[in-house]
Amino acid sequence: MPDELNAKGYDIPPEMQNTVAITTLDKLYNWGRRYSAWPMMFGLACCAIEMIATAASRFDLARFGMEIMRPSPRQADVMLVSGTVTKKMVPQIVRLYNQMPEPKYVVAMGACASGGGPFKEGYNVVSGIDKFLPVDVYIPGCPPTPQALLYGLMKLQEMMDKQSIKSVRWYQKGDLPEIPVPILGPDLIDPRDYPDFEFKLRQAYAEKTEEEAS
């Protein structure tokens, strides 16, 4: 019986120490959950390569109970947003998140997923997935090494430990609100506007030269 399961303040006789555990329901519940958080199998960009390396035998996610990456959102618990989130990809990611059953967690892996990263100013990139999803753990780095990712996942497990059945959102009364799926919005540059754009520039230039001439 693992020591982490025992609640403090109870004396167990020494002869029963390895057979009996006194614990709280919360602890038992969290203990079960923290060692069975299955990530969803999808990768978005270069961080995905590190994620794959973490799942492979050298670092081995299975040591943390994240046995298998599930390709179906219905069987996954953790969403590892690994990489740059483009505006075109956001609706799909939010839909996948909505399809995951509770309890569900989101880990933003790498600079791009948590804050936009080097592409923050890009016309096609979402600067941080936390604008659309409730992110639980942010892992900085570009990309985070497998060990940094494991550290982030351990942080997630610590967070699970602190949750209580009374206050978790999936046991509250009423339906949980769905996260609204964003619509693919207008880009900062619309190619269709280019002739117009050119015309406007020319007009502005003409006005400027006129002013200078007069």
Partner: peptide
Amino acid sequence: DFELAVYDRHSNN
């Protein structure tokens, strides 16, 4: 040091 994961990026990162 690579152990930098946090719960809230706006106040920490």
